[in-house]
Amino acid sequence: MELNKLENLLDTIITQSESELTSDLKYTLNESKKVLLKSYDSLENEYDKIINDGKKESDKITKQILGSAELESRNKQLAMLEEYIEKVFSKVISKLENMTRTNAYSKFLSSLIEESIKILGTSDIEVSITNKDEKIIESALNKFTTVKLSSERITCLGGIKVRSKNGTMMLDNTIDARLANMKPLIRKEIATKFGVNN
């Protein structure tokens, strides 16, 4: 009798424990599912973040590579263009160096003297020329009675350098100076001929 009671008690305890354990297990399972669900969210967020960061990084690297490649090729093109522009200038200078001093050139010198008088605001001036123009300058100077020819000779392609009588004003009206002043515009013209800036 006593033994039956004990068995019943044991059964009850076992059943109770079983149901408690099952309920605990169910609770734990539910909790685990919840945690898992939550971690899915954060995992997805983390995944998105990694993908996003990776995309940003790859965009950055693409931009770097493309940017520097484009610049490098542009710079090479610029250097090459400049080389050709310089070649054109050298040819022009060599032609000017070897040009024959004709009547037209004498008229050109006269116009330079006239221009210089206008700019300086006085006709009391002294003109310096290159050795090559010694023969032709006389005819150019004919109509300017107050203009004197300096004994000093200058090195240039052609044209004149003018000094006021008191020596305070000077005007460089040589072909070299004119070429230097016009160089940026001439460069543009040459570049246009090569198809740049069109």
Partner: peptide, 8 residues
């Protein structure tokens, strides 16, 4: 009046 050089 462009290009005039003054020395004073």
């Amino acid at each position: 009046k462009s290009g005039i050089q003054y020395s004073k």
